[in-house]
């Protein structure tokens, strides 16, 4: 139980009592991924709407291409970019820098899922709205988007699950922290980061905690995917 309620405790030879836990990493991951979600969701959904509803334009082609490129960029590259642009300039490792790096990974996923889901909404629905004298933006927001909502939420959840497990971008932006902190502007701990650092340690107890952190991540991804399944099944039933 200490595993979930305690933070890092220095390992001393022959020490008695608890071995510490990973609470600081759970809180850190939740905050970093949460902030990334807040950044990426509006950007991703708006971009997806733009791509789906204004398909033909040159801007749409450019955005779609950039999105595809961005989704194929190795995550360490995104991390290093965030390091150069944010960490070096602010002279501070921070949770927020990690959030921005993760958001950059999430946006393309959310954008493409949103675009695909909006395209599945039949054209007749848009025509119905137009024939009632609805401006394009109104029809998109109040008619088309609600019909695609299940799929859009799915995209956001999948992007979140992907981001929660990323280690590389966090290594160079969030750094790591052995204390429990909720300050997004300073170094933080995160589950994948903790798992990586602890496996390098010569102490068995920390190695075990790394496995524990990895298990939490796996369960999180599993839980998200199950949630997605349940959501989409309910949506597709008439």
């Amino acid at each position: 139980m200490d595993f979930f309620t305690e933070t890092f405790r220095p390992v001393t030879i022959g020490a008695r009592g608890g071995a510490g836990g990973v609470l600081h990493a759970i809180v850190g991951s939740a905050l970093i991924v949460g902030a990334a979600l807040l950044l990426a969701t509006p950007v991703g959904i708006l971009a997806g709407i733009y791509l789906a509803e204004f398909r033909g334009g040159a801007a749409a082609t450019v955005i779609r291409f950039c999105t595809d490129v961005l989704s194929a960029v190795p995550s360490i590259v995104v991390g290093v970019t965030a390091y150069v642009l944010i960490v070096q300039r602010t002279r501070q490792f921070s949770g927020l820098a990690g959030s921005i790096a993760l958001a950059a990974l999430m946006v393309p996923i959310i954008t493409r899922t949103t675009e695909e889901m909006l395209q599945l909404v039949p054209q007749t629905v848009r025509e119905a709205a137009s024939a009632l004298g609805a401006p394009r933006w109104w029809a998109t927001l109040t008619v088309v988007l609600p019909m695609a909502m299940g799929g859009v939420v799915t995209g956001v959840l999948l992007a979140m699950a992907r981001a929660a497990g990323e280690t590389a971008p966090l290594l160079v932006t969030v750094l790591g922290n052995n204390q429990l902190t909720v300050d997004l502007f300073g170094p933080m701990q995160a589950l994948p980061l903790l798992a990586y650092r602890y496996t390098e340690q010569p102490f068995q107890i920390l190695n075990e905690q790394a496995w524990g952190a990895a298990l939490i991540l796996v369960l999180l991804v599993l839980g998200t995917n199950v949630a997605v399944r349940v959501l989409t099944r309910r949506r597709t039933r008439p």
Binding site: P122, T124, V125, E127, A128, S130, A131, L132, G133, P146
Partner: peptide, 20 residues
Amino acid sequence: PILLRRRVGMVFQQPNPLAT
């Protein structure tokens, strides 16, 4: 055209109520 479409309504071939 938006105001015009309020004066000239339309019914389509396939019933297209808004499912949500």
